[in-house]
């Protein structure tokens, strides 16, 4: 048992502490300009450049991080009440889906003209911020170049049973499946997915976890975005992992973009556009090229020397705006059993 007076004192202390805690957000809310960003890109990739934007402009950025589809669904759920000003997605499909639902506002031409037409919405509702290639990362101790498949579709072959990994919850993966649907048709895409599941393809939470499993030798190869390899190589140059780009015309060779759009429910569209413009400026594009090892989308910014230039990657004929039907893709992925 403890004495009454200590109890009373501690109770008063607790109340004061909790009042202080409740007062904190109120104090921070008093700051004048705050942008709310919903980001499907993880904090480790996009956080530093958002902070740099805040430091340079004095505009505070509150970022909410989640999966690309999750953030888009959240915006749809919130409707007109959405606190979000800017939506950043890790693939064009989710942006297209929001645009199709009429939730994005048209961007001004000074933003749109910075990016090639292939990497933006045809109606100017979203722009790409950086490019990424879908690749097969493989463990060089377990596989040699001769073992590598000529096509993404070969991965359903029994030789690969239990040796491949993927990240079915990941926005980039989902966009890739959408691309398969657009390129090959529903049935072929479904057949590939069910074939992969039947072939014991291991599901991981994200690209990094797939890469980790490949480098550990838990699996022989995994489908990821190209840029995850380089930070891992910086940490450990002897990592036994290399990237395999699928050959010309194969649906495995997809170039997608991470992009952004401004919500039409934003109460500060001017500030929101300023952020998007900043992300297409030299500083941010150089950051994407040198810190996250992606492809910058504006001209005049050099890529990392280890990267294959964008122009040399044989990519299938596809319009990124066609990737907007995410829901059908998600249904397909679930139907196949890749997601519970």
């Amino acid at each position: 048992m403890f004495s009454r007076s200590t109890l009373v004192k501690s109770a008063i202390g607790l109340c004061l502490a909790s009042l202080l805690l409740l007062a904190l957000p109120a104090m921070s809310a008093a700051e004048p300009e705050t942008l709310t960003v919903y980001s499907g890109r993880s904090e480790s990739l996009i956080g530093p450049i958002l902070e740099q934007f805040s430091a340079e402009t004095g505009i505070r950025v509150e970022a909410r991080y989640g999966e690309t589809a999750e953030m888009a669904a959240t915006i749809l759920e919130e409707g007109a009440n959405s606190p979000a000003d800017v939506y950043i997605a890790q693939d064009a499909g989710a942006l297209g889906a929001l645009a199709a639902e009429g939730r994005l506002a048209a961007l001004p031409s000074d933003i749109l003209e910075r990016v090639p037409a292939t990497f933006q919405s045809a109606s100017g509702l979203w722009v790409g911020l950086s490019g990424r290639a879908r690749v097969l990362a493989y463990n060089t101790d377990l596989l040699s170049e001769a073992d590598l498949p000529a096509s993404l579709l070969e991965l359903t072959d029994p030789v690969w049973h239990g040796r491949i990994g993927w990240a079915p919850t990941n926005g980039s993966f989902q966009a890739h499946v959408t691309a398969l649907r657009v390129l090959l048709g529903e049935d072929a895409a479904r057949a590939w997915l069910t074939g992969m599941v039947a072939n014991g393809t291991a599901a991981y939470d994200n690209n990094r976890a797939v890469l980790q499993a490949v480098s550990d030798g838990e699996i022989a190869a995994g489908l990821i975005n190209h840029y995850y390899l380089y930070p891992a190589l910086n940490e450990n140059p002897t990592l036994p992992v290399a990237l395999h780009f699928f050959p010309a015309g194969d649906p495995g060779a997809l170039i997608n973009v991470a992009g952004a759009g401004v919500l039409n429910t934003s109460d500060q569209p001017g500030l929101a556009q300023r952020l998007v413009l900043y992300l297409l400026g030299n500083a941010a594009q150089t950051y994407f090229a040198t810190a996250t090892y992606e492809y910058p989308l504006i001209s005049g910014v050099a890529i990392d020397p280890r990267l294959v230039p964008l122009a040399e990657i044989p990519t299938p004929e596809i319009d990124l705006s066609d990737l907007s039907d995410l829901q059908t893709t998600l249904d397909l992925i679930q139907e196949s059993g890749a997601l519970p």
């Binding site: 889906a97 998600l330 679930q334």
Partner: peptide, 20 residues
């Protein structure tokens, strides 16, 4: 542990799909 019990299924449904 990637075991498809309820909470994981709900979370995956919530985070990776539009269909809430």
């Amino acid at each position: 542990m990637r075991y498809d019990a309820f909470t994981r299924a709900i979370f995956l449904q919530y985070t990776s799909s539009f269909d809430r």
